[in-house]
Simulated assay, not measured.
Amino acid sequence: MKIALATVAFVAHSLAFAQATPVGLWKTIDDDGKTEKSLVRISETAGVLTGKIEKILDPSAKPNAVCDECKDERAGKPLVGLTILRNLKKGDEEWYEGGDVTDPKNGKVYRAKVRTLEGGKQLQMRGYIGPFYRTQTWIRVE
Rank of each mutant, 00 (worst) to 15 (best):
G33I: 10
V8Q: 12
G81T: 07
K71V: 09
L25Q: 12
F132N: 08
G98F: 02
C67G: 02
V8E: 07
R86E: 13
L85V: 14
V109N: 14
K108G: 09
I139H: 12
T116K: 10
I139Q: 15
L88C: 06
G47W: 01
L25H: 06
T45S: 05
K113V: 03
G51S: 02
E142Q: 13
W95H: 03
Q124G: 04
G119H: 03
R140K: 08
Q136P: 12
R41K: 14
E54F: 01
S14F: 05
A112V: 09
L88I: 04
P22G: 03
H13G: 15
F10S: 05
Q122S: 12
V11N: 08
Y133K: 12
L88V: 03
R74Y: 07
E93N: 10
K71T: 14
K52P: 01
V109Y: 03
G107Y: 12
L25P: 00
M1Y: 04
R86M: 11
K89L: 01
E93Q: 07
L5W: 15
K113N: 06
P59N: 04
Y133S: 14
K55I: 04
I84Q: 00
G120M: 07
A4V: 08
E69I: 04
D100T: 15
L49F: 05
I3H: 13
L79N: 02
D103S: 10
R134E: 13
A75H: 05
N87L: 10
A75F: 04
Q124W: 09
K105F: 15
P78M: 10
S43M: 07
G120C: 13
V109M: 10
L49N: 00
S38L: 05
G120E: 06
K52F: 02
K89H: 04
D58M: 11
R140L: 07
